[in-house]
């Protein structure tokens, strides 16, 4: 596994239909979070599988003061990897 210090997982049951899903981002390395968020470690947010771009959400987190600009790439990639997996699973699931 890559040691990025950031992990993304689904925060809700994935019924395979909704475009908007809840994701939970775990920050394993607290040094990545800024200022008053240093005591945090879990960030929950929703992501639209059809309309949104992982890197865009990572940039919003940076603009919101959660992450340093230098971590935007890692955060974006972590979200992208998870989203790709979720989409892959959906494509393989044949609706009954």
């Amino acid at each position: 596994a890559e040691d990025t210090g950031v992990r993304v997982e689904l925060a809700e049951e994935n019924d395979g239909r909704k475009a908007s899903i809840a994701l939970r981002l775990w920050v394993e390395d607290p040094r990545k979070l800024k200022g008053k968020y240093k005591d945090g470690g879990v960030i929950e947010f929703t992501f639209d599988l059809e309309k949104e771009v992982p890197e865009g959400v990572a940039q919003e987190m940076v603009e919101s003061g959660l992450f340093h600009e230098s971590d935007a790439k890692i955060v974006g990639k972590s979200i992208r990897d998870r989203v790709a997996l979720i989409k892959w699973r959906r494509e393989r699931t044949v609706p009954s």
């Binding site: 775990w26 005591d39 945090g40 470690g41 947010f45 603009e63």
Partner: peptide, 27 residues
């Protein structure tokens, strides 16, 4: 709890919480 909400200008909400004890390791 120490949960904090941040709302970006796009309207997206980020909910920041501490890591639960059970998920902490090496501490």
């Amino acid at each position: 709890s120490a949960t904090t909400q941040v709302v970006h200008s796009t309207g997206r909400r980020f909910i920041v919480s501490p890591v639960p004890e059970s998920r902490l390791k090496d501490q």
